[in-house]
Amino acid sequence: MQRVNMIMAESPGLITICLLGYLLSAECTVFLDHENANKILNRPKRYNSGKLEEFVQGNLERECMEEKCSFEEAREVFENTERTTEFWKQYVDGDQCESNPCLNGGSCKDDINSYECWCPFGFEGKNCELDVTCNIKNGRCEQFCKNSADNKVVCSCTEGYRLAENQKSCEPAVPFPCGRVSVSQTSKLTRAETVFPDVDYVNSTEAETILDNITQSTQSFNDFTRVVGGEDAKPGQFPWQVVLNGKVDAFCGGSIVNEKWIVTAAHCVETGVKITVVAGEHNIEETEHTEQKRNVIRIIPHHNYNAAINKYNHDIALLELDEPLVLNSYVTPICIADKEYTNIFLKFGSGYVSGWGRVFHKGRSALVLQYLRVPLVDRATCLRSTKFTIYNNMFCAGFHEGGRDSCQGDSGGPHVTEVEGTSFLTGIISWGEECAMKGKYGIYTKVSRYVNWIKEKTKLT
Rank of each mutant, 00 (worst) to 15 (best):
E35N: 13
F176R: 05
M6R: 14
E76A: 04
I262C: 03
K168A: 08
L41K: 14
G236T: 05
I344A: 14
V228Q: 13
D315N: 10
F196K: 13
P197I: 06
A192R: 06
L19C: 07
G351Y: 02
S11A: 11
E67W: 03
G351H: 05
K168T: 05
N36A: 10
C128T: 01
F360C: 11
F221I: 12
A308D: 13
E76G: 15
I15R: 06
F196P: 11
A233Y: 08
R449I: 05
G413Q: 07
E420Y: 14
L163Q: 03
V248E: 08
P12H: 10
K347N: 11
A37K: 00
F144H: 02
T29R: 08
N147C: 05
C69E: 03
Q237P: 08
A164Q: 07
V273S: 09
T190K: 13
P324A: 13
P375E: 05
S99L: 05
V227K: 10
H303W: 08
S220N: 11
D131K: 09
S354K: 09
E159K: 07
V326M: 14
D110R: 06
F176W: 07
S169A: 12
C97A: 01
G229N: 07
F345D: 01
L460A: 08
W118S: 15
P333Y: 00
F31Q: 15
T271C: 05
Q219D: 08
A307H: 10
E193D: 13
S184P: 09
C69V: 03
G412H: 04
G357T: 14
S182C: 03
T218Y: 09
E10D: 11
T158K: 02
V30G: 15
Y341K: 05
V56Q: 14
V181M: 13
D110S: 09
G272T: 11
L383H: 15
A380M: 07
K39C: 03
A149G: 06
G398P: 03
E323A: 14
F71H: 09
E434I: 09
C170I: 02
T215L: 10
E208Q: 07
I429F: 14
V377P: 02
K260S: 02
A436K: 15
L425H: 02
C382K: 02
L372V: 14
K168V: 08
S25T: 11
T422Y: 04
L14D: 02
E231Q: 09
G421D: 06
R373F: 04
D110Q: 07
E98C: 04
Q219P: 10
P120Q: 09
C155I: 01
T342E: 03
I262W: 01
I210N: 05
R140N: 14
A380C: 05
T225P: 09
F31Y: 15
Q96N: 09
E98D: 08
R140A: 08
N138S: 03
K247Y: 05
H303C: 04
S107L: 05
S99M: 05
E434C: 13
A307R: 12
E159R: 06
S148A: 08
T287K: 08
K247W: 06
F78I: 15
T158H: 09
G363S: 12
Y444D: 00
A279R: 00
S187D: 13
L376S: 04
A207I: 12
I309D: 09
Q143N: 01
L52K: 15
C407S: 04
S365N: 13
R180D: 02
S184Q: 06
G253Q: 08
D322R: 03
V278Y: 04
S182V: 09
W118E: 15
Q237G: 08
L60D: 07
Y22I: 14
G105E: 04
K362I: 04
G412E: 03
N59Y: 05
E323W: 06
P324Q: 05
Y312K: 06
E142V: 06
K440M: 05
C382P: 01
C69I: 03
N222L: 08
N203M: 11
K45I: 15
G106E: 00
Q90I: 13
V181L: 10
G272H: 11
E193N: 12
V92A: 15
M6Q: 10
T81L: 05
T29Q: 10
S99C: 08
T445P: 00
S217V: 11
T381N: 15
P44V: 13
C335A: 00
N310I: 02
R294Y: 02
N147D: 13
T215E: 06
D131R: 12
L367H: 13
M394L: 08
V451Y: 05
S187P: 12
L14Y: 06
M65E: 05
F31I: 15
G230P: 11
C28R: 02
W453F: 05
L383C: 06
S329V: 05
I428M: 06
E320P: 00
P172A: 11
L319R: 00
T461P: 14
R140K: 08
I454G: 00
G349H: 08
S99K: 06
T133F: 04
R373E: 07
V368R: 11
A317K: 00
V174P: 02
F144S: 00
R364C: 04
L19F: 12
V263T: 02
F221H: 12
E98L: 10
V174T: 10
N283Q: 09
G413E: 02
E259Q: 07
V243C: 05
S182R: 10
G125M: 00
E288R: 06
L163C: 02
F176T: 07
V183E: 11
P324W: 02
K68Y: 07
A307T: 07
P44H: 06
L327R: 06
Q2A: 14
E142N: 04
Y352P: 02
S107K: 09
A279I: 00
V273Y: 06
S350A: 12
S182F: 08
V228L: 07
G50A: 14
Y391C: 07
D111H: 08
F251I: 11
A337T: 03
N36P: 15
D33A: 12
V56M: 08
V243R: 11
E340W: 08
D249E: 13
R364V: 10
K39Q: 10
L383E: 13
Y91N: 15
L460R: 15
V368C: 05
K440N: 14
T290L: 06
R373S: 12
Q219I: 11
Q216F: 09
Q216D: 10
G357K: 14
V30P: 14
E281C: 10
V296G: 02
F360P: 12
A250T: 09
L23C: 06
F78K: 15
E418M: 14
T426W: 01
V353F: 03
A37M: 04
L346M: 06
R180N: 02
E72M: 15
P172R: 06
W118A: 15
E116H: 06
V174W: 05
T133C: 03
P235Y: 07
N258A: 04
V202E: 13
F123A: 03
I454R: 00
E340T: 13
P375S: 12
Q167C: 05
D223P: 12
R191Q: 08
Y450D: 02
V174F: 05
L32V: 14
P324M: 04
K152A: 10
H303L: 05
A436N: 15
K387W: 05
I334V: 15
V227G: 13
H400V: 14
H415W: 02
S156P: 00
G229Y: 13
D212R: 11
E340L: 09
K440H: 14
S107P: 01
T271G: 09
S114V: 05
E286G: 09
E67N: 04
D322M: 03
M6D: 08
F424Y: 10
L20R: 03
W261A: 00
I334H: 01
V416I: 09
G13C: 11
R191D: 09
Q185L: 10
R83E: 05
I297Q: 07
N138C: 02
F78A: 05
R140Y: 07
Q408G: 13
L372R: 14
R379Q: 11
L23F: 13
Y91C: 04
D315G: 02
N213S: 11
E323F: 11
I299V: 08
K68G: 10
I275Q: 03
E420Q: 08
W261V: 02
K137L: 08
Q237C: 04
F388A: 05
F345E: 01
W88M: 15
H289S: 13
V359A: 13
M6K: 14
T133D: 14
V374T: 06
A308V: 10
N135C: 03
E259D: 06
T287L: 13
G409T: 06
V359D: 13
L103V: 09
P197C: 04
G254I: 00
W240K: 01
Q219F: 10
C28Q: 04
N5A: 14
I7P: 11
A279G: 03
A233M: 08
R364W: 05
R449S: 12
T381H: 14
D33L: 10
N203I: 10
W88H: 15
S114F: 05
D410R: 12
F123N: 03
K146I: 09
